[in-house]
């Protein structure tokens, strides 16, 4: 029983040591790679615009995050798709575009409605080609200004934080019982 407690306690302490290292990594800020790209679009009602934030041939790797900032006077839907630009039809109606994206659901990395000012960050889980689609489904013309930059980080912060959230309680419970038993044992020894 004592050995099992020690073994579990050591595993817990190891998990806490890993969480500590991940916590330190979380404190390291992201770095911007290259120059931020800016642009503006006028979107007719029920129309869309295709953007290639990294250029038509470029790919996004898991160590990088695509940060996108939008300003619009209307409500737009932003799609980030893992498809080369040439594979996306250019003159569809908004309904047909939705059907096309439904067919390619596996390639849609992100779908988000934006209004006024929004910042979206996307970190891929693998190597992806990123093409951005801005869809205006409103009845009036929308204008949108955007800015994009690529950020390099130690590891995706959201995933690091998630790992800490799950691992640290387990580590604390396992290490805690070990410390508790050790204290009890010392008390017993000092009394005898």
């Amino acid at each position: 029983m004592k050995r099992l407690s020690i073994a579990l306690g050591r595993i817990g302490a190891t998990l806490l040591a890993i969480c500590l290292s991940l916590g330190i990594l979380l404190l390291i800020p992201q770095a911007s790679i290259g120059i931020p790209i800016n642009g503006a679009e006028q979107l007719e009602p029920m129309s869309y615009s295709i953007l290639t934030p990294l250029g038509p041939q470029a790919t996004l790797t898991p160590e990088t995050t695509l940060k996108m900032e939008f300003r619009t006077n209307s409500t737009l839907t932003v799609y980030l798709v893992n498809l080369p630009t040439e594979d996306i039809p250019k003159n569809l109606t908004s309904d047909k575009l939705r059907i096309f994206l439904k067919d390619k659901a596996g390639n849609v990395l992100l779908e988000k409605k934006i209004a006024e000012k929004e910042t979206i960050e996307y970190t891929p889980a693998g190597m992806v080609r990123t093409t951005l689609i801005l869809l205006n489904e409103e009845s009036q013309t929308a204008s949108a200004a955007w800015s994009m930059e690529i950020l390099a980080s130690i590891a995706p912060k959201a995933r690091l934080a998630e790992a800490i959230i799950y691992l640290s309680p387990v580590g604390m419970v396992l290490a805690g019982q070990w410390i508790f038993i050790e204290i009890q044992e010392r008390k017993r020894k000092s009394l005898s």
């Binding site: 050591r10 190891t14 040591a17 890993i18 500590l20 991940l22 160590e63 590891a155």
Partner: peptide, 18 residues
Amino acid sequence: ILEVFAFLYAISTFVLVQ
């Protein structure tokens, strides 16, 4: 020892990828 090495493994793994 185990905890220190786990810490070193974890931190060096991520820092090197960066």
